[in-house]
């Protein structure tokens, strides 16, 4: 399999140095064609920011302070804005975490889905609208031709999310970055949509980066998984290996927090002790150490880098234990 996206030592900060806050620290991962990489991890750990940086969408105050992002063998940093814009939309699509904020409330769904198709393919409005309707149909929106005339507020939360997915598929991108794409979908529609994404990834030999909190979805759809905590990747492995053999104390804590049929209903759920870290005030050394049951003095010396544990690309960032 050939690597399509490689992110190396990526660090991202908000604000001006020296008061800037590093929200992503030395993140490295890659995705090959035909592959699905899931990024999971704590709320606020830097998943969305990492995804946005790939598309150059960090917004005001945010910047890449270190590292490189290579797409199809080209370092995106070396391209001018126009070239990056061409890649975004044609070759990389993003499904944003909060659909309502990325849809324009004043424009019909049809206009918003068809416009990029018209621009990128140079087809007529009529053809673009027809294609938009077919895309909505693929994500199970009933009566799609009629619904193209509606505005976003007339759609349910999950329907808006599916509109975002349809838009991402429009230009047959080589890479889709989906940030929590199914949080507003019931499990039957979710299965439909994720199977569609997975099938397209396989058929078009493209790649999927799936950011999600749903560890059931990860188990069923991901090939590889990266686990994030406080701006860094703390563990990465194939999906099968990660579920069979989780190693990092944060991953262990996360897995133990899944509410499942084996837990007594309404009993106190297991959660990782302590408070989530504030990236503006991280402790020295391993950021998970204050909450870690295995921590010892050695853990506060430096932030542990990823290292191989076992074969098959299983890596984790922990010095304390094996």
């Amino acid at each position: 399999m050939s690597t399509l996206l490689r992110v190396e030592d990526l660090s991202i900060a908000f604000g001006e140095a020296p008061d800037d806050v590093r929200v992503v620290e030395s993140v490295t991962f890659d995705v090959a064609r035909g592959e699905t990489l899931a990024i999971v991890g704590e709320s606020g750990s830097g998943k969305s920011v990492t995804a946005l940086s790939i598309l150059g969408l960090l917004g005001h105050g945010g910047s890449i302070v270190d590292g490189s992002i290579c797409f199809g063998g080209v370092d995106l940093h070396t391209l001018d804005e126009a070239a990056v814009r061409r890649i975004r939309g044609n070759e990389i699509s993003m499904i944003f975490q909060e659909p309502m904020t990325s849809l324009n409330p004043a424009l019909t769904i049809g206009k918003q889905v068809a416009e990029p198709i018209r621009i990128h393919r140079g087809v007529s409005w009529k053809e673009a609208l027809e294609e938009a309707a077919q895309l909505l149909e693929r994500v199970s929106i009933p009566d799609p031709r009629q619904r193209l005339k509606d505005y976003p507020h007339q759609f349910s939360g999950g329907m808006r999310q599916r509109v975002m997915i349809a838009m991402a598929l429009a230009c047959s991108p080589a890479l889709i970055i989906a940030d929590e794409p199914t949080t507003a979908l019931d499990v039957t529609v979710q299965a439909q949509v994720l199977n569609l994404l997975k099938t397209l990834t396989r058929e078009m030999n493209s790649a999927l980066v799936l950011i999600t909190h749903d560890l059931g979805v990860v188990a069923q759809y991901a090939d590889k998984v990266a686990v994030m905590y406080a701006g860094g990747i703390v563990e990465t492995a194939t999906a099968q290996e990660l579920y069979r053999n989780p190693k990092h104390p944060y991953t262990l804590g996360l897995m133990a927090s899944i509410p499942g049929a084996s837990v007594n209903p309404r009993s106190r759920l297991k959660a990782i002790d302590g408070s989530p870290p504030d990236v503006a005030n991280l402790p020295d050394g391993c950021p998970f150490a204050p909450r870690c049951q295995f921590a010892h003095e050695g853990c506060t010396a430096f932030r542990p880098p990823l290292r191989a544990v076992g074969g098959g690309g299983h890596m984790m960032a922990c010095v304390g234990y094996d």
Binding site: T183, H213, G253, I258, P259
Partner: peptide, 9 residues
């Protein structure tokens, strides 16, 4: 829906 399982717990 936007919380990891530990914070969700």
């Amino acid at each position: 829906s936007a919380l990891d399982v530990s914070i969700q717990a």
